[in-house]
Amino acid sequence: MLIRSTTALAALLLFAATPLARAADKPTDPQIAHIAYTAGTIDIEAAKQALKKSRNKDVLDFAKDMVRDHEAVNRQALDLVKKLKVKPEDNDTSKALTKAAAAERAKLAKLKGAAFDKAYVDNEVAYHKQVDSALETLLIPSASNAELKSLLQTGLKIFQGHEQHAEHVASMLK
């Protein structure tokens, strides 16, 4: 999990981490839209896996919340890019995130019962933390369109809320 977290974090901070980063290295709005949408999709996929595998009511409820909220955010994101006539643009950060998430899903697929529940919820805490920090330090400051910035700020509050929710579920699993 630590390895996966580090990979995803590195991916998210790819733009900012470049030494001698110039202003031009900041992600563009079409890239930011793609990264944010991808981050939501990844969490929906993780939740769907949990809905199939878990038997724990707290975990199942949490996973349902994740699907519902992230689908709602992504719907708003799609409406916004359509309105702004922005075409989300795939990029290295989105690709690295997707790759790290696939590896995590494969790892979780091998686990069962309480071991799965714990690994899923722990990863949810870690994942939401990473996305929070990427939103705060990179994506929100880089967004140039005001409406995109505002949606990302709402997204940040959602992700922060989910992080606390996940921490609460994790404490109940112990």
Binding site: D65, D69, K157, I158, Q160, G161, H162, Q164, H165, H168
Partner: peptide
Amino acid sequence: FCRFHPNM
């Protein structure tokens, strides 16, 4: 608070 988003 909000159960879904305890930061609320």
